[in-house]
């Protein structure tokens, strides 16, 4: 591993640490400040029942939206950095970008893809709620759609991202 690769790797590790740390903050403050139900058997039972109770999922969508938002932002900062290496030196740029092809990085990219898809789709869902007044049940249903799009999109993307190294 070259120095440049090592520096990039450290940068990416920082992004990962930021995501984990922020997730911890979100979950902890959710537990302390946010008057939503605790994660318990009764909550799971309620979520299993169709109807108004499932609206509770939107609270978790909010947390995921925040975490994915921060993750994407942190990664974009890094990414702007590594792309701008092109201006400095084409060799270093290529060197760093080889890292993107490594196996662990590919797994991380699948995660990034999920974050990107979820954040985008959920953001569009919120715009839809605002524009056409979906209401409680409508917006919950839209959330199912968001999750579906994110999961299916991630799986499809995973085939392309992971395919070359796994098969």
């Amino acid at each position: 591993m070259s120095v440049a690769q090592f520096v990039f790797f450290c940068g990416f590790a920082l992004v990962a640490v930021a995501i984990v740390a922020f997730s911890v903050v979100v979950v902890r403050s959710a537990r302390r400040d946010d008057g939503g139900p605790f994660v318990s058997r009764s909550l799971v039972a309620r979520l299993a029942r169709p109807g108004r109770d499932r609206a509770e999922l939107q609270r978790w969508a909010f947390y995921l939206h925040r975490v994915s938002g921060l993750g994407l932002f942190a990664f974009l900062c890094l990414h702007v950095g590594d792309v701008s290496l092109y201006v400095i030196s084409r060799e270093i740029y290529d060197e760093v970008h080889q890292v993107y092809g490594s196996v662990p990085m590919r797994f991380a990219e699948v995660g990034l893809l999920f974050g990107l898809l979820f954040h985008t789709a959920n953001g569009l869902r919120l715009v839809a709620v605002d524009l056409v007044d979906l209401g409680l049940t409508g917006s919950t249903r839209a959330l199912y759609g968001v999750l579906g799009v994110s999961v299916v999109g991630t799986l499809a993307g995973a085939v392309f991202i992971l395919g070359p190294v796994i098969v």
Binding site: G35, G36, R52, Q58, R59, L126, D130, L136, T140
Partner: peptide
């Protein structure tokens, strides 16, 4: 942020 925590919690069924 349209979390709908309010509407889901309202004991009077307001939105």
């Amino acid at each position: 942020h349209y979390i709908y925590g309010c509407t889901a919690a309202c004991p009077k069924g307001l939105d």
